Amino acid sequence: MSFISGSSERTASDLTVSIASPSDYLALLKPRVMSLVVFTALAGVLIAPTHVHPVIGFASLLAIAVGAGASGALNMWYDADIDVLMKRTRKRPIPAGKISEGDALGFGATLAVLSVMTLGIVANWLAAALLAFTIFFYVVIYTMWLKRSTPQNIVIGGAAGAFPPIVGYAAATGEISLASLALFAIIFVWTPPHFWSLALVKADEYGRAGIPMLPNVKGANRTRLEILLYAIVLAPLGLSPWLLGFASLAYGLLATVLGALMLLFAARVYFVRTGERADRCAKSLFGFSILYLFLLFAEIVGERLLAFSQRLTINLPW
């Protein structure tokens, strides 16, 4: 009986033997976030005026993906104490007791170094430096500092998730351009309404974990207002790739429709403030915001790949 009682008091950090499977280490990399990083970085590569060799482009995207995974692993290592308190995170590998905190730290740090060195070797050192800064910003500035200290954590910390297009563009060209900065700005402004819509629904969980998300500090109504204000800014900002000339009119029309829908979903969150319907509106905005960003970047990627395939067909000998 005493053995059972003693076991129940152990935490994930007390484990000395790893019982992790490959899928647990994959979960440590936050694969859904990693896939978004790779997709937006691919857009950065494709909008470059120069055409990177496919092998170099693939290796660069792989390095960026590994860097994103390293950031996720280090984030889970540091946040293990609060992940165990939240329903949506308590099944992650560390709070679930499958991977020790020390193993996660070593795994993430090793991947971070390898990703930066690989990108520097296969592409250029500007891209590598930007990737290193992105990892540092997400792990140190956001995870270790902002997340637990200010309700503006998502606003400032969102820069980490917005850097991949700049890193991708730099990998292809060795430079930073206005076009890559435009993609950065779209993701940066998109991030607060995306995460705050979830925070409205999960406010109790964030409160138990001691995370000062905007709904917990400023209240739900202030959060709804800021979501709407960011959506108002995002709608015209989404048109910038077309206005700057590196996306087609089709993109401009798509961005107009998606921006209007984003405003509509944000307005519903602002005006519907009580009951289960308010939670449904917030969840709907969260889900649509993912679709919004995916479709915008998918249009850019699709246009660039189509143009590349057409040039390739013209240059073939037959």
Rank of each mutant, 00 (worst) to 15 (best):
N153Q: 14
F136H: 05
K147R: 14
T173N: 01
M144N: 04
P192R: 01
F195I: 04
I186A: 00
L178A: 15
T134D: 13
P164N: 12
I186Y: 00
Q152K: 11
A129M: 12
S149W: 13
F136C: 01
N124R: 02
A132E: 00
A129N: 03
L114G: 05
N124S: 06
A182T: 15
I141F: 13
L183W: 05
F163T: 11
A132H: 00
I186C: 01
L198Y: 03
T173I: 04
M144E: 02
Q152D: 14
A172K: 00
G168Q: 06
W196Y: 07
A127F: 09
L146K: 06
A162K: 04
Y138K: 10
L178M: 15
A170K: 03
Y169R: 05
Y138L: 10
A162E: 11
T143D: 11
Y169A: 02
T150I: 12
T143W: 07
S177T: 07
T118A: 15
H194L: 08
T150Y: 10
F195C: 05
N153Y: 14
S177D: 12
L181R: 00
W190S: 08
A185V: 13
S197D: 05
G161R: 06
F195R: 05
Q152F: 14
A128S: 08
T118M: 14
A123V: 06
I176P: 01
A182V: 14
A127M: 07
A159S: 15
L198A: 09
T173Q: 03
V140M: 09
I166V: 15
T150D: 11
K147P: 13
F133T: 06
Y169G: 04
F137H: 13
A123G: 07
W145G: 06
I141N: 09
A182G: 04
Y138A: 12
V139G: 04
G168V: 01
G161I: 03
F133P: 01
M144W: 11
L181N: 01
L183N: 04
V167R: 07
G161C: 09
A171M: 00
A182R: 01
A171P: 07
Y142N: 10
A162T: 05
L130D: 06
I154M: 10
V116E: 03
T143R: 04
A182Q: 08
L126Y: 03
L114E: 03
T191S: 13
V116L: 08
L146C: 11
A123K: 04
L126F: 07
I121E: 11
Y169I: 07
K147I: 13
F163E: 05
S177F: 07
Q152C: 09
Y138F: 12
A179G: 09
F136T: 02
A171T: 06
V140G: 02
V116S: 03
L178E: 13
R148Q: 14
I121F: 15
W145Y: 14
M117V: 15
A199P: 03
G120H: 01
L198Q: 03
M144V: 11
L114C: 12
G174Q: 02
P164G: 09
L183I: 02
A170E: 05
G174L: 02
N153I: 11
A182Y: 00
I186Q: 00
Y138P: 00
A185D: 06
G158P: 08
W190L: 02
A159C: 12
W190M: 08
V167T: 13
S115M: 10
I121N: 08
I141Q: 06
S180N: 02
I166L: 14
P165R: 03
I154G: 09
S197G: 12
A199C: 08
W196D: 05
I135W: 07
F133L: 13
A182M: 11
